[in-house]
Each structure stands twice: as C-alpha cells, then as structure tokens.
Simulated assay, not measured.
Amino acid sequence: MKLSEKIIELRKANSMTQEELASICNVSRQSISKWEADIALPETEKLLILGETFKVSMDILLKDELTLNEVKDIYTCGNNAVQEKKQELYEGILIKESVVDDSIIDCLNIHKIELWNTGGKPKYWTALFFTSDKRNFPELISKVMLSDPAAKQNWFVDFKAGNNKYIVFKDRILKYQIGNRNEKEYVCNECRKLGVSDKQMNWPE
C-alpha cells in the first residue's frame, strides 16, 4: 500500500476532512490533496505529524509493503534492541541524505526521526534511528552510501551489533570490537585516509 493510500485510509478512519488534516499539519488543503493523489510527498516534519496524529510508526507510513493493519514486531531502541531476540540485530543512526537509493530504508525498523540543522547545504539532514535484522545489512548499506573520493567526501554510517562497532563507507566495511583499542585505532586511521575528521569519529559505542 502506497503512502498516499495510507493517508486517505487513516484520514477517513479518523473521520477527518482534508481541511481538518491540513490544519493539523499546517499546510493547505491542496497539499493534502496532492499527498493523497500521489503527486507530492510530505516533508519529514509533516510525516512526523501524520504519525503522531494517526498513532502509527514511521515504518508503517514509509514502507509500501506494510499495510495499516499488519502486526509487526518493533524492538526497543537501545542496548536491549541488540541483545533481545536476534543475535544479528544492528542498531544505529542513518542520515537519509547519505544514501543514493532510498530502498535501503526497507531494511530498517525505524524508531525515531529527527531533523538536524546543518547550518549549510542542505539546511537539514534527516536522521533515522534504526535497528535492522538483515544479516547482510553491512554489505547492503555499503552499496548505497554516497562517495566522492576526488573531494575526499565520503559519507559513512556507524552502527553496532552486540559488542561489534561498524563504520561503513561506499564499498568499504570497517569493524572493531568495542573496548579493543588497537582495532579501534586501526579503523580510525582508515577513516582519516578517507577524509573523516577526528571530530566526526566521536561516534557512540
């Protein structure tokens, strides 16, 4: 089911007119009409409002293969998310603008979305707080990361699984065991070669 169809169904299920939904989202009625006609997509902040208004997760709204009445396991974000149920459960934060193919989002369980003001261009980054139970997730995400080697502008995503920390670039997967200083220093040195500053390597463990 497409996002446009979900918006229509959720609005009608809540006995809401386009005008009423437009008021909640602080947009025009024409914007709601365009969303429902699949002519335009809501901005990230509007998606957050839709999710809060209709009490549905970002997963349900964003993934075409999920229907509104589908029962889906959502694991708690944090250390428990890695330790609970599945051994190969990855946890991290992905900047949506850092990938060239949005279909990678289908591999994620999204728990929270934040807009980060960059102070540059683009003005905002969309931060997706996620877990993933895809065993080959590091390989999948490495195929879609943005990269400009000539300018030494290589995007990366950092995440962890259990006691292992992953730093993934375009076609490059770096990994170290949390607490192993030698392994971490090797990974940090490789990141520096790819143009990553020490400030950017202040990732959570």
Rank of each mutant, 00 (worst) to 15 (best):
V100Y: 10
L68P: 08
C188H: 07
N189K: 13
K96C: 02
N26H: 06
D106I: 03
S103A: 14
I178N: 08
L89Q: 11
F54W: 07
I113N: 01
C188M: 12
L194H: 04
I105A: 08
F54T: 11
C77E: 13
S142C: 05
T44P: 11
S142L: 01
I93L: 11
G179C: 04
E9T: 14
I8M: 09
W125I: 05
E43R: 10
E19Y: 00
K184Q: 14
N154L: 06
I74A: 00
M1R: 10
P204W: 04
L47G: 04
N154G: 04
A127F: 02
V99K: 15
L94C: 05
A40G: 00
T126G: 07
I173Q: 03
K160P: 00
D106C: 07
D158Q: 10
S15D: 12
L3W: 02
P138W: 06
K2Q: 14
E114Y: 03
S103Q: 14
K175P: 02
R181S: 13
K46T: 08
K46Q: 08
K63W: 03
P122K: 05
S57L: 03
L41K: 15
L140A: 12
Y90L: 02
R29A: 08
V187H: 02
I178H: 06
V71Q: 14
F156N: 02
S57Y: 03
K123A: 13
L47Y: 10
G78C: 11
Q87W: 06
I7F: 10
K199G: 08
S31R: 00
N80Q: 14
C77K: 14
V144F: 05
E43Q: 10
L68Y: 07
V71L: 13
V196M: 04
M16I: 02
K193Q: 10
M58Q: 04
V187C: 07
E183N: 07
N26I: 00
A13S: 15
E65A: 13
K63L: 15
K72V: 14
L66N: 13
I105V: 14
T76Y: 15
I110K: 05
G120V: 07
P42T: 02
G78S: 11
A127P: 01
N80D: 13
K72A: 05
L21Y: 01
T44N: 04
N79W: 15
P138Q: 05
G195H: 04
F159A: 06
K121N: 14
N180P: 05
K86L: 11
A37P: 04
V71E: 15
E190M: 12
